[in-house]
Design a protein around this nucleic acid. Structure first.
Lengths: 355, 355
DNA sequence: TGCGAAAATGAACGCGTGTACATCATGGGA
DNA sequence: TCCCATGATGTACACGCGTTCATTTTCGCA
């Protein structure tokens, strides 16, 4: 029983016997409208199958109703296809949908200049969530320009110390601290750190937590125990030869890998060399991705509330939902930290130091 | 050196000493514009930092420039966070970006009615890619209505036989066939199928391929060898008790799981019962996700070109890029099938039948 | 040099909505 | 009963662009 073509506000107004302005008020729930009129209009709209043009609404309101999500993208290595981003995206989408916003997904090419500002000036997005941002001079400048132009955005899991950018992150220093404490608790005394690039603040945070735990335990922070990866499984495997030797020689008895992918790469590399995490060394990863449950032995890890990070990021940008408490959406702390949780599994639990 | 506020076309026109229409033509690359004029306008636009309002453009053109991507979403089980969807999304995003389109990501709640049509009528999207669609009466009807209203969409990895919907899928029948053939080639004669729900056409396709391979080998298709899962790891683990018994009793010597997650769940469940795929039974999964390389033994699988599926889906909706061959974007076959590829690993390769 | 056709440009308008302002109806208090 | 405040509705216009059509300019050719 649908009419052909597009139904305009004008036709609804005619059928309902009111003016277009009244139709507009009813559709938007604007204040002064008599209940009887309201019903008349709604019925007419229903009968005709009228749906306001989102395009015209956006134009008139000067708001797109879109929240942009910037995702890092490297053509060959599809970084995007990771647990990490998927979970955050779900969270953002959930929060955005509740507020009537749509999610515009955009890939950030590392090659071309990042013209974030253009997104706002063309009005394609009203606000942005930045994922996988790196602490580089170029990025800092681009973000500073955004902030200066008063374009709302929030960084997830990336902090720019000294720059007043809104951030929602997990408490990665605490995560690094607890992971290291856990290994210490298992009896480890020579704990290696397989970290990611320090352009990510979360890498630096984990390092800080790691050092703090060692210091508290009265252990030296040997720079020789820090290995550099890039968060890929391959880079974890690449660290295996050196670490295998260190373990065999008793120079390392525990390893904290800064994410699960590297931990798993390392696990596989060690096994190829006859060393089994959980027996010959204690190993703990980070992120508590699905993969942590797939390995043999299962991988200890630090759970990061990715979904919640996405929800919070969107909430901060869009304000809380109508029925939510309106308390802290104004301007909470600039940098918000969500707690992480250690998840102990066999890769560290079954290890007992030889000494 | 940026101007304050928004710069309008009018100001560019004034600075360049031309009319607004000419500015519009230059910005859109419309045909009759003298080169000198063109440069003048571009220079003026550059100086003022003029950027056309995407909102106004969309409104005037009656096109949003957005390609919608419908993703299934179940609040608790975040189906979305899988290799599968991430890869396809990357592909769609890549193709869309090349054509100047943006990606609008939308979650389909299984609870609320699927009002796809509204997306088009509000002009939020110009076209849609449907992921994880199910062959149910409600879905069929919703899609039929879209097709009737001439709203462009493409299904990925889901075919509605008998309905004239555009589809881009992998050749899952061939995949099921080759997976089964591979197990046969390893000497298996009693091959079980751990399949997913048949509301997904790809489940049905794999079943067909499985049966064809068995028939070609002169083996009966024993319905008792078909186990029902739901593509989750849990459901794979749930099949472990029954399959372990069947394997122990010699009633099963090979298992084809319809995706990697179930295969891995099964692998873990079997190991808990003292049975090791690769030694006591041959196992092959499907999708060739990253996880297939994480297990011990590593999991044989069938690689699906998820990224390419996404690219093709977007290409069919948006037409080929300017420099691409314009041949087949008009109306290729309605259902397009991309080839899959078998990837043999230890879970099937190291198995040798006892008899 | 002149002329006509084609190319280049300008003027004007429509797109469908939100909204400020004007107008009208309603109702309570004197 | 009258008046005014208030609530309800209608009128008119702006939003910034694309685009049609009229107008002007350019240029090839006689």
């Amino acid at each position: 029983m649908q009419e052909e073509g597009l139904i305009l506000r004008k036709e609804v107004a005619k059928l309902a016997g009111v003016s277009e302005a009244t139709v507009s008020r009813v559709m938007n729930g604007a204040r002064p409208v008599r209940e009887a009129t309201r019903r008349k209009v709604l019925e007419a709209a229903e009968r005709l199958g009228y749906v306001p043009s989102a395009l015209a609404q956006q134009f008139a309101r000067k708001r797109s109703g879109n929240i942009g999500v910037i995702v890092p993208y490297v053509p060959k290595v599809r970084l995007f296809s990771t647990y990490y981003f998927s979970e955050i995206l779900s969270g953002i989408g959930e929060a955005a949908q509740q507020r009537g916003y749509d999610m515009l997904l955009m890939f950030r090419s590392p090659y071309e200049a990042r013209d974030y500002e253009r997104l706002y000036r063309t009005r394609k997005v009203d606000a942005c969530v930045m994922l996988g941002s790196q602490d580089t001079p170029g990025e800092l400048e681009a973000l500073a320009r955004l902030a200066e132009a008063d374009h709302p955005f929030v960084l997830v899991n990336q902090r720019f110390d000294g720059a007043p950018f809104g951030t929602v992150e997990a408490d990665h220093e605490q995560g690094g601290y607890e992971a290291t404490r856990h290994l210490l608790g298992r009896g480890c005394r020579r704990i290696a750190l397989l970290n990611g690039p320090l352009v990510y603040s979360n890498s630096a945070d984990r390092l800080t937590g790691y050092r703090r735990a060692l210091a508290e335990a009265g252990l030296p922070a040997d720079p020789g125990l820090c290995y550099a990866g890039n968060y890929s499984r391959t880079s974890g495997a690449a660290a295996a030869p050196a670490l295998a030797e260190a373990i065999a020689q008793g120079r390392v008895d525990g390893v904290f890998a800064a994410n699960d992918r590297m931990a798993i790469g390392l696990l596989q590399g060690l096994r190829e060399r006859g060393l089994l995490p959980g027996a010959d060394v204690a190993l703990i990863g980070y992120d508590d991705s699905e993969a942590a449950r797939l390995t043999e032995p299962q991988l200890s890890s630090v759970a990061v509330p990715f979904h919640a990070l996405g929800v919070r990021a969107a909430q901060r940008l869009l304000g809380r939902t109508a029925d939510g408490s309106p308390a802290d959406d104004a301007s909470p702390v600039l940098v918000e930290k969500l707690p992480v949780q250690l998840v102990a599994r066999a890769s560290s639990l079954t290890y007992t130091p030889s000494v």
